[in-house]
């Protein structure tokens, strides 16, 4: 087994872990974290494809590598927007939950600023 296969299996595990976390965690912040984990796994899969495409004296195919660089920056923008939305939800409703029952009860007891 070479390094590319090894990290490929690692990336498959990361995608599964991220998917599991994003489904079962009730807290939105933990969902965002898990989603980033999933993204990290997908990016690493690109890295494996790039490494296997090593040719023309290059250590890897530069096209998937460049796509991942763009992807990391876009993932960061989306994370920043999601986190700000979450903090705004907390500011307005006094809770940071996606559950409808908990949200309405916290509104009635005067949560928020």
């Amino acid at each position: 087994m070479n390094a590319a296969t090894l990290y490929g299996l690692c990336s498959a595990a990361l995608v599964g872990l991220g998917l599991f976390g994003a489904i079962v965690h009730p807290q939105p912040l933990r969902k965002i974290l898990a989603f980033n984990l999933l993204g990290g796994g997908v990016f690493l899969q690109f890295g494996v494809i790039a490494r296997r495409g090593a040719a023309a004296g290059m250590g890897g195919d530069p096209v998937p590598q460049a796509m991942v660089i763009t992807g990391i920056v876009v993932a960061f923008s989306a994370t920043a927007l999601a986190v700000t939305l979450l903090l705004r939800l907390y500011q307005v409703s006094g809770s940071a939950t996606l559950s409808i029952e908990t949200q309405s009860s916290s509104e009635s007891d005067g949560g928020g600023r």
């Binding site: 390094a3 590319a4 790039a50 490494r51 890897g60 590598q65 991942v68 660089i69 990391i72």
Partner: peptide, 17 residues
């Protein structure tokens, strides 16, 4: 990433990711 010979991505991951 560095082990996968993608040092550009490694730098981006460390700095931004």
């Amino acid at each position: 990433w560095a082990r996968l010979a993608a040092v550009d991505v490694a730098l981006t991951e460390a700095a931004i990711g």
